[in-house]
């Protein structure tokens, strides 16, 4: 069985295009306590289930499996966190949705500032299955997230939304890959990044429309705000289309807070700090308001505010 150490060593180096900005060499060079793999099946028994899990990631190699039967509906809240001491963690989420099943996943990912996290989600969607994932990714010493969704059968719908909000000096990486493998699939993807001083964020959004995936409807947007000199964002939308009757759009923006809007707010009496926080919160809240689970949204909001 693959242990934490073996799994780390098996990951590619920066010569691999998808890992170009994620240099694991310093992590691999360190001695980490090894851990055996752990697999947790998330129970989803009823027709409509709702589950909230607080997951301590530190030092673990953990896999969550979520499997929904046909027509099942589930909401899962994952609060992913770790302690303050230096730690390595690997986390896999395996999602399998049978025909017409629906999973809404809310992720609040808040590893400790000294935790390095490699996190990977793989989802397979059956016919007319619906998968929505809304996440707040709050960084870590180094946090690498891969979100891979495969729309395997006709009519599948995938929606990935996320806010990237690392703390100053942190490295946060989100790579998404949406594989449209069957006709009439729909995918929506919106990410927003807030990058403070000396932090580095990477968003790589790949959409692949395979040759049989006619009538695919796909949209992807990533908007980034650089909050201080020395902040870095690498945003790359990628679109590969092998079918000829599809609708695909993508866009990326990058900028700073609008000085005129800040000034306007100040003339109304808000001090600069309050005005800045209001605008940054609003920027991210456009994503996080999609969290329909009240306690999860409150938790995400609290974490977001601590980052502003």
């Amino acid at each position: 069985m693959n242990t934490l150490r073996a799994a780390l060593d098996a990951l590619p180096d920066t010569r691999h295009e998808d890992w170009r900005y994620t240099d694991l060499a310093p992590l691999k060079a360190r001695a980490w306590p090894d851990s055996p793999p752990e697999v947790v099946d998330v129970p989803c028994h009823s027709e409509r289930s709702e589950e909230s899990l607080v997951v301590d990631l530190g030092g673990r190699m953990l896999t969550h499996r979520i499997s929904l039967r046909a027509n099942q509906q589930a909401t899962l809240v994952l609060h992913e966190r770790s302690g303050d001491e230096p730690a390595l963690a690997m986390h896999n989420i395996e999602v399998s949705l049978a025909d017409n099943a629906s999973l809404t996943l809310y992720r609040i990912q808040n590893p400790g500032a000294a935790t390095s996290l490699i996190s990977r989600l793989d989802a397979h969607l059956g016919r007319d299955a619906r998968f929505t994932c809304v996440g707040l990714y709050a960084g870590g010493a180094l946090a690498r997230n891969d979100l891979n969704v495969s729309l395997d059968a006709p009519g599948a719908q995938a929606a990935l939304y996320g806010v990237l909000a690392p703390a100053p000096g942190e490295h946060l990486d989100v790579h998404t890959r949406l594989d449209h493998r069957a006709p009439h699939g729909t995918s929506r993807e919106t990410f927003r990044c807030l990058v403070p001083a000396k932090a580095k964020a990477i968003f790589n959004g790949k959409v692949i429309v395979h040759k049989d995936a006619q009538k695919t409807d796909s949209e992807q947007h990533v908007d980034s705000l650089l909050l201080a000199p020395g902040a870095e964002i690498n945003a790359k939308p990628e679109l590969e289309i092998y079918a000829d009757d599809v609708k695909c759009a993508h866009g990326a923006t990058c900028g700073q807070l609008d000085e005129t809007v800040l000034y306007y707010l100040r003339t109304r009496g808000l001090d600069l700090d309050t005005a800045r926080k209001l605008l940054l919160h609003t920027f991210a809240h456009e994503i996080l308001k999609r969290i329909a689970h009240e306690p999860a949204r409150a938790l995400a909001d609290e974490l977001l505010r601590s980052r502003l």
């Binding site: 609008d258 005129t260 809007v261 306007y264 707010l265 109304r268 009496g269 808000l270 001090d271 309050t274 209001l278 605008l279 609003t282 920027f283 809240h285 456009e286």
Partner: peptide, 19 residues
Amino acid sequence: PVEIPGVSSMYLLKTALNA
């Protein structure tokens, strides 16, 4: 006047008045 999507006028008025 600037447009500020996502910040309601009501919220702005109250925040400004209280500030």
